[in-house]
Design a protein around this nucleic acid. Sequence first.
DNA 1: ATCATAAGTTTGAGTAATCAAAAAATCAAG
DNA 2: CTTGATTTTTTGATTACTCAAACTTATGAT
Lengths: 232, 232
Amino acid sequence: MPTATVEDYLKQILIGEQSAPGERVATGAVAAALGVTPGSVTAMMKTLAEAGLVDYEAYAGATLSAAGRRLALHVLRRHRLIELFLVEVLGYDWSEVHDEAERLEHAVSERLVDRIDEMLGRPAVDPHGDPIPTAAGQVAVPAVVPLAGVPARRSLRVARVLDQDAGFLRWIDVTGLAPGTLLHVLDRDEAAGTLALELGSGARLAVGLPAAAKILVALEGDQPSGVKRARQ
Amino acid sequence: MPTATVEDYLKQILIGEQSAPGERVATGAVAAALGVTPGSVTAMMKTLAEAGLVDYEAYAGATLSAAGRRLALHVLRRHRLIELFLVEVLGYDWSEVHDEAERLEHAVSERLVDRIDEMLGRPAVDPHGDPIPTAAGQVAVPAVVPLAGVPARRSLRVARVLDQDAGFLRWIDVTGLAPGTLLHVLDRDEAAGTLALELGSGARLAVGLPAAAKILVALEGDQPSGVKRARQ
DNA sequence: ATCATAAGTTTGAGTAATCAAAAAATCAAG
DNA sequence: CTTGATTTTTTGATTACTCAAACTTATGAT
């Protein structure tokens, strides 16, 4: 049985791989994400490689092995199902669930996670729009793109918010850009680095490109919940 | 912030104090309950005494300090609320909740526990009939006695089952002696060491005194949920 | 091509927990 | 009382992390 610490490292390596597919995950990226020193990460990388959970090469970084990916996907599944459960069943705000889930993900049994999954109707995504891996390790890969890259005059739906920071999520809340929101890009102002938006509610606002890069959208008119299954 | 291990030791010392009020809790009792060696307990006792959480005297055992009791009661509160939550909200059987709660009690925030408490309507007891401490550290002390000590010809209600062993709890289930059950003691057979019972359902059965010692009952006719509050 | 900087690794040490086994203290009979 | 059994403590080692700081490797800019 892996320790909570091992689970945290594996999860972080998986997230690193997902944000830059095909590349090795750097020691420093893991250190920054977990709030530990680079030396600690190097030490753990060797432990994980020893256990056959990652393929580690000094100075180059690590990739997950099949066994490591399997484990990491289970941790991610637990995390995201717990987040959704906290919102749906316990009335948490989606900006508050991350830290609670961070601790619970190491304490819940597979059995409890499956009950939660069942109770929530086997959901595909968590409150942030992040896809929830199935018990078998399958992840839905929705057809979404960053809002920052969308040209003017397109109709979109907010699908996912990448930043888990509570402050950012509260800003999303007050501007009304939560997942599910319909919106239209009125104009791109490349000079100012902003996008002018009109929401489904009729409200108009401008968002900066850095923020827009963290908001993933689906093109409306595409297949509504157009989702491919990939063994990822 | 105390570690999960410290919380486990404090909780166990509290349970030891409750089952033998006024006495110091022995090193060996804690070791047996937690499944560690006596040497580990001695080491931890010193750590806890150092931190002002217990009053420890070598070869005599430990008692909780005010700070230690406060902490231990919070752990017990978390444990019991989680047990009830698993039964009421997630459909667990009461014979299965103990191990799950054992891990979750160290991972839930005070905030989450309070939400659960609120959602369950600030319950007084968990599925086993064990009283749930309030957030302020108050514990209800119901007027209950072991079934083993009740004379014949009394009407009773099962209030609490002391043994958390899943096998014992399943036996309670199949015999129909779960908390809340009304029953009547038809006869005490001192020679055989059994009690003849008639349940509210009309079923008759005999239970041995060792089992009856682990079942606490309230005398029917007393104030129905006659409960005193004690700062314990 | 070299050289400073950034990134990563190594080393040595510390913390929190554990155990096995030796040593010491307590208790209960006789 | 003394002895023998039981309980508890001590000792020394181990595991799974962690960090700070010294050292090494890789990268990119001139």
